[in-house]
Design a protein around this nucleic acid. Structure first.
Lengths: 116, 116
DNA sequence: TCATCGTATCAGCATATGCTGATATTTTAT
DNA sequence: ATAAAATATCAGCATATGCTGATACGATGA
């Protein structure tokens, strides 16, 4: 690689962003942006299946985007760092201006959106 | 959806982040972070194939992350907004602290890393 | 006009990704 | 100890994603 001293960091960074790049995970992150929540609260709020949420939480946890704390039977999840929320907000801000374009961005993404 | 008023915005946001979530696109974005470049400069710098770069640029352009300007035979690409660079920097900053974890994040990601 | 350079597009393939459903695990109450 | 609740894990599947190679397009110079 001619670009970076360590191409590794690029892969890490890509994997990091992948945490934000799925609608389900993003829903979870946005939800946690409003405060710590248990798994079942997340399941209810998002409408996703329990196993699905649990898998995504595992992914987000491994990536360091969220932290978990067991309390009794429940596990409370929260954004692990203030900057995770900042990233969400910055993206929101940018998105407000480029949203129109993103609709068109189907090259490496969804082929069509049926219900709209 | 019980979470957001418009689930649509979540999908858009996820698609937006997908722009950052691939090593090749990230290389391109990081490269453009240092200033506007032509396609061939990007091809040389990244070592990616021309068609591959062009496809990714099309994706990034549709998503509003980069802008293009034709000058003669060349097309000059640049980050479309200051905040795109800010996002990269914020991610870098966060990554410095959670990088160890991201290595472990193979749940919805790479199964193994052969060459290391 | 013709040849060439720079860029874009597209089909086809291999792989990665996310979801479901079943099951395991952990914790607490009876 | 047993049952039930909350969460985690995993195999299997359908689809999305990124790459390659061939080709088309657009601009410039001979």
């Amino acid at each position: 690689m001619l670009l970076h001293a360590n191409p590794k960091s690029i892969e890490i960074q890509a994997r990091f962003f992948r945490g934000f790049s799925d609608p389900s995970r993003l829903m979870i992150l946005e939800f946690l942006h409003s405060g710590p929540r248990t798994v079942s609260e997340i399941v209810t709020a998002t409408g996703l299946s329990q196993s699905n949420v649990s898998n995504h939480l595992g992914c987000l946890r491994d990536c360091g985007l969220v932290s978990a704390e067991q309390q009794g039977r429940f596990v409370h999840y929260a954004l692990s760092d203030e900057r995770v929320g900042q990233l969400l907000e910055l993206a929101d801000s940018l998105l407000a201006d480029v949203a129109k374009g993103v609709y068109e961005c189907t090259r490496y993404s969804v082929k069509e959106t049926a219900n709209d």
